[in-house]
Amino acid sequence: MSEKMRTYKAHPMSLLFSIITKIAVIITIAIFFFIVGYVIIRGVPYLTPSLFEWEYNTENASMMPAIITTFEMVGIALLIAAPLGVFCAIYLVEYAKKGNKLVKWIRLTTETLSGIPSIIYGLFGNMFFVIFLQWRLSLLAGACTLAIMVLPLIIRSTEEALKSVDDSFREGSYGLGAGKLRTIFVIVLPPAMSGILSGIILAVGRIVGETAALIYTAGTVAKIPGLFESGRTLALHMYVLSNEGLHMNEASATAVVLLVTVLLLNALASLVAKKLSKGEK
């Protein structure tokens, strides 16, 4: 300790810097606990059984339809985005030649797409899926919009996962006379799988938390929707409740459920990522 003090005396700037970094850490952690604590204290007392009834009405303000809609939304959006993103990444890493113009274009577009605010996806989805394709405000229009939104995320993470697979495995496989398809599916994909999965789980997190892109595409009807019917996800449900101002307590309760879902997803993602780094050793 005294040695440390002597160092700081000799270099006062390093003491200052060390304090600044520590303050930053404390503030960050405090903000996290403040938000989580606030949501839980505000929400948990209102988590009543009536909130989980099948039908929504103004009496119970049930979030059950929203929960189911959320699952539907995640399922459909992933069904579209995951294969598209994964195959696109496989093309980029395994098939495309370096310096290929197309690759540059795909990189540019995915990077641009990932930087666009979600409300713009919402507007595009509204103009294209809702109006032009005449799907109206519907689950499918919302899911398609979200699929486009998370596509760059999935492509990027899959690309990284594929690149992290050592080239010597590919050489070994080709050297034994295996073709490209077999090499990719039997040798490259299995070790890359956990990286791909953690990317997909992050995408799920974004879908679950999204509101702006859904208001104009999936609408806000509080029923369990069919493919071409409007429905609201949990995040949207919460937004609408607090917007109406009549069910603030129920909105807080919804926030708890939403928060828990997202925290669980993140935990799952880091668990999968940890497994990945272990696998590399």
């Binding site: 495995f169 050489e171 080709y174 050297g175 006379g177 073709g179």
Partner: peptide, 18 residues
């Protein structure tokens, strides 16, 4: 693929699959 079946290869660093 036929060529590589007839002409096998052992690399500088062992590259067994996981």
């Amino acid at each position: 693929t036929e060529l590589r079946k007839r002409v096998g290869m052992v690399f500088q660093k062992p590259n067994l699959f996981p």
